[in-house]
C-alpha cells in the first residue's frame, strides 16, 4: 500500500508527465475549436499533423533535455495564458479562423519553452516546422497575393484543351450555357499549403537525400494546383450543364473533400516511388564497389 502511494507521488514529481499533460490538453483545445469552427479539412489536417509531431517526439523522448529556467518558463507560461484567453473570447468567425491556424505553432513554441528553455529549443525544430505548416503559410500567402486569376486561367486552358468553347474574363470562366467565378479561397492556396505541410512531414518521418527536398516541395505545390484546377474545370462543366445537384456535391459536399484525398494519395505514391528509388540505389551502390 505504501509502495503504491510512493510511486504515485514520485510520478507527480516528474516534469515529463506534466508536460505531456499540458501538450495533450492544449492539442485537445485546438482540435475542439477547429472542429467547432466547421472547417472539416483543417480538423483532419490538424489530427494528422499532431500525430506526426507525437510520433517524432516519441522517437526521441529518451534523448530530450527537459531542463528549463525561470525566465523561459515564464515566457512559455505567458504565451500559453494568452492562447487560453483567446480561446475563450472570440468576437467573430474570422478571429476563430486565425486562431485555429496560428495556435498550433504558438502552443508548440510555448510548450517547448516550458520543457527545455531557450537553450534546448532547437531540439524541437522539426516539430515546430510541422506545426508552422499547419496553418501559418495559408494565412500569410492568402494575404500577400490572390492565386484565383492563375487558377481560372489554368482551368480555362484545360477546358479549351478538351474541346470546350470557353472564354476567360479575369476570374470568370465562361461556357456557352453557364459561367463560374473562382474566389480567392477556392484558388487552391489552401490545398497547396496542406500538401506542402504533408511533404514536410514525409521529409522528417522518412528522410530523403538533401538534393531531393526541392523536387518534393515543387511536386507538392504543382500537384495541389493541377488537381484543384481539374476540380474547377469539372465544376464549370457541371454549372454549364445546369446540374446543380452534382455541382453542390463536388463543391460543398463530400465530393469536395474527395479531391483533397486524391491530392494526398497521388503525392504519397510519388514519395513512395522516390523512397523506393533511393533504397534501390543504396542497395546497388555496395555491389558496384565490389
Amino acid at each position: 500500500m505504501k509502495a503504491t502511494s510512493l510511486i504515485k507521488v514520485k510520478s507527480l514529481q516528474n516534469s515529463k508527465l506534466w508536460l505531456l499533460g499540458i501538450g495533450a490538453a492544449t492539442s485537445a483545445i485546438i482540435l475542439t475549436l477547429t472542429w467547432k469552427s466547421g472547417d472539416v479539412a483543417q480538423a483532419g489536417m490538424s489530427i494528422l499533423f499532431l500525430l506526426a509531431v507525437a510520433s517524432l517526439l516519441g522517437e526521441k523522448q529518451q534523448k530530450l533535455n527537459l531542463e528549463s529556467g525561470l525566465f523561459p518558463s515564464l515566457v512559455g507560461g505567458l504565451l500559453l495564458a494568452t492562447l487560453l484567453w483567446q480561446s475563450t473570447t472570440f468576437k467573430s468567425n474570422d478571429s476563430l479562423e486565425i486562431f485555429v491556424r496560428v495556435s498550433p505553432f504558438l502552443g508548440g513554441l510555448a510548450i517547448s519553452l516550458l520543457a527545455s528553455g531557450f537553450q534546448g529549443f532547437k531540439q524541437y525544430w522539426q516539430e515546430l516546422t510541422i506545426l508552422f505548416f499547419l496553418g501559418i503559410p495559408k494565412l500569410v500567402l492568402s494575404s500577400l497575393f490572390d492565386l484565383s486569376p492563375l487558377t481560372a486561367k489554368f482551368s480555362a486552358f484545360l477546358l479549351w484543351y478538351f474541346g470546350f468553347d470557353v472564354s476567360l474574363q479575369g476570374v470568370f470562366i465562361n461556357l456557352p450555357t453557364g459561367s463560374v467565378k473562382v474566389y480567392a479561397a477556392c484558388s487552391g492556396i489552401e490545398s497547396i499549403c496542406y500538401l506542402l505541410g504533408i511533404a514536410v512531414i514525409c521529409l522528417f518521418v522518412f528522410p530523403m537525400e538533401r538534393k531531393q527536398i526541392p523536387i518534393v516541395s515543387i511536386v507538392a505545390i504543382a500537384l495541389a494546383f493541377i488537381i484543384n484546377g481539374i476540380r474547377i474545370s469539372l465544376l464549370a462543366v457541371m454549372s454549364a450543364n445546369r446540374n446543380l445537384q452534382a455541382f453542390n456535391y463536388w463543391h460543398e459536399g463530400d465530393g469536395s473533400l474527395l479531391f483533397g484525398i486524391i491530392q494526398v494519395i497521388v503525392f504519397v505514391c510519388f514519395y513512395l516511388f522516390l523512397l523506393w528509388q533511393q533504397e534501390r540505389k543504396n542497395q546497388n551502390s555496395p555491389q558496384v564497389k565490389k
Binding site: T32, L33, S92, L96, V180, Y183, C186, L244, H251, G253
Partner: peptide, 29 residues
C-alpha cells in the same frame, strides 16, 4: 471550450466563411 457552443458570429455570406468548399459560387454573366 467543450461546453461552449456559440463561437463568434456566423458568416454573413459564403464568401466570409473561409472554407474552400463554400467559396466557389455559381454566377450568370
Amino acid at each position: 471550450v467543450s461546453l461552449t457552443t456559440n463561437l463568434g458570429e456566423k458568416p454573413k455570406s459564403q464568401e466570409d466563411s473561409g472554407r474552400v468548399v463554400m467559396l466557389f459560387e455559381q454566377e450568370s454573366i
